[in-house]
Every structure is written in structure tokens, then in C-alpha cells.
């Protein structure tokens, strides 16, 4: 698979580490979340057959994390974006 990195252009997916569903970015609020919320966040997945928003970490490149929209039935990638916009402060 070729991932079209927004800054670096087409890159081989082997340069990346797969980190799972992009929904994992929406972490429960530690002030209010219950044990059930944490269980659901940590262990349950939608696991769709079809378009899937997912995180790819460019470990062998610029170490950015990308949000890749990829069809899990065909491996076709339809969208790639930086998880944190370029230049944004931490």
C-alpha cells in the first residue's frame, strides 16, 4: 500500500506503524469517565467492513501521525490527513 503523506508525498506503508482506529483519539474525560467508559474505549472496536478512519504513525519518516481513510474490503485509501495540523503547537 502507498500512503500519500500530506507533507512527504507517496510513501510505502512499510515505513509506518499501524495504531488502530482514529476513534482512539477521542479519549474519555478522566474527570467524568466511568469504569465502563474506559472499558469501552480501551477494548471495544467498531471494526467496520468498508471505509475506516485509522491512525498510521510514520516511524520510518517524519514521526507524524496520519489519519488515513481506507476501505478495509479493498485496501483503497481515499483520504490522508495529519492527525495534528502542521505547525500546530503541542
Amino acid at each position: 500500500m502507498i500512503i500519500h503523506h500530506p507533507l512527504l508525498g507517496p510513501r510505502d506503508s512499510a515505513e509506518f506503524v499501524y495504531l488502530g482506529a482514529a476513534a482512539l483519539m477521542d479519549r474519555p474525560d478522566p474527570e467524568t469517565a466511568s469504569a465502563d467508559d474506559w472499558h469501552d474505549y480501551a477494548y471495544l472496536r467498531d471494526n467496520p467492513a468498508g471505509p475506516h478512519r485509522e491512525l498510521w504513525f510514520h516511524e520510518g519518516g517524519d514521526r507524524s501521525i496520519l489519519i488515513v481513510t481506507r476501505d478495509t474490503t479493498t485496501h483503497e485509501i481515499t483520504d490522508v490527513a495529519l492527525a495534528r495540523p502542521a505547525g500546530a503547537q503541542i
Partner: peptide, 9 residues
């Protein structure tokens, strides 16, 4: 990576 494609890379 997540896949239902029954083929790999």
C-alpha cells in the same frame, strides 16, 4: 492493519 480483503501486501 484492519482488513476484510482476504489478501495481503
Amino acid at each position: 492493519y484492519n482488513s476484510y480483503a482476504q489478501r495481503g501486501n
